[in-house]
């Protein structure tokens, strides 16, 4: 059946209009205002690239926010996805109780970030925190490390609030492992492939695009991370755990410097686009194997 172009256009128009209204137009506004000195109190002056130049040359907090964001993106795209894939692989062997483990492991991903943040704040509290309590029990001496606010532990503690919770990656990668055709596995076994060879030569290459999707989801999640940092350290101590979304929020809502915040939004969107483009290239996402 041939559908006329008019009908296709008619069905697509509402969607395109809605998309333009809630995404394209605001995005254009953000791009335009990023070239303005726009602050509360009616200040609105064109400043060209000044916001961008200031951000990349003089603003130390911006530099720290970019560095932290990129480190977290990299960690999430590598360690987080690797860990999730490893667990998914182990689960795909269907050892006893794998379904229960899969469900339990998913819990941190299905509760709200604010609840998770409150739990973790209490886990890592200096006084009465679970971690310090365990260390105190083991060593026999009172241990009161302030995990979230000591300069030497703040970054790693914040990182731990998401790095090890790979439930979403596990679910996606597990589906990928399960979708590898049994005939291919059987054929490889007949040819004498070991479990390790099966994994690295057959299964992982075959779920390459699935893993690419996992990496995109994981990496971009750190470009938008806000709640867990805001609710645990607020970006501190100092600027040690600040990232771009949090700095953007502070610039907009506390400094009321909307032009500068728009510039950060543009930078963040660019990072996202570059990130997705690179991952697409690395994982050859447009070439299907299965």
């Amino acid at each position: 059946m041939k559908i006329s172009k008019w009908k296709i256009a008619a069905f697509l128009t509402p969607c395109i209009l809605l998309f333009s209204l809630v995404f394209v137009i605001p995005m254009l506004i953000i791009i335009v205002t990023s070239f303005f000195d726009w602050k509360a109190g009616g200040i609105f002056n064109f400043v060209g690239l000044n916001n961008y130049i200031n951000a990349f040359t003089a603003d130390k907090r911006m530099h720290q926010a970019i560095i932290n964001t990129l480190i977290w993106v990299a960690l999430q795209a590598t360690i987080h996805v690797s860990l999730g894939t490893l667990i998914a692989y182990l689960l795909s062997m269907k050892v006893k109780g794998w379904k229960v483990f899969r469900t339990i492991y998913m819990i941190p991903n299905v509760i709200s970030s604010s609840v998770l943040a409150v739990i973790l704040v209490n886990v890592f509290r200096a006084k009465g925190g679970l971690v310090n309590g365990i260390i105190t029990k083991i060593t026999g001496t009172t241990f009161t490390k302030n995990w979230f606010f000591d300069s030497d532990s703040a970054f790693i503690t914040v990182t731990l609030t998401w790095l090890i919770y790979t439930g979403l990656i596990v679910i996606i990668a597990l589906a990928g492992f399960m979708s590898v055709p049994e005939e291919i596995i059987d054929a490889a076994r007949i040819d004498g492939a070991s479990d390790a060879k099966l994994l690295f030569r057959i299964k992982l290459p075959l779920i390459r695009t699935v893993l690419g999707t996992c990496v995109i989801l994981a990496a971009t999640s750190k470009l938008t991370e806000f709640e867990l940092i805001y609710l645990t350290t607020g970006g501190g101590p100092g600027d040690m755990t600040i990232n771009l979304p949090l700095y953007l929020y502070k610039t907009s809502m506390i400094d009321n410097n909307y032009g500068y915040a728009s510039m950060m939004s543009v930078v963040l969107v660019l990072f996202g686009v570059i990130c997705v483009f690179l991952i697409h290239r690395i994982f050859r996402m447009n070439e299907a194997d299965i």
């Binding site: 300069s151 607020g234 501190g236 101590p237 506390i254």
Partner: peptide
């Protein structure tokens, strides 16, 4: 307001 917010950012560093 941004100074009031900055206090929270800087206090932990001052304290340590």
């Amino acid at each position: 307001a941004n100074v009031v917010d900055e206090i929270s950012v800087q206090y932990p560093l001052l304290a340590q």
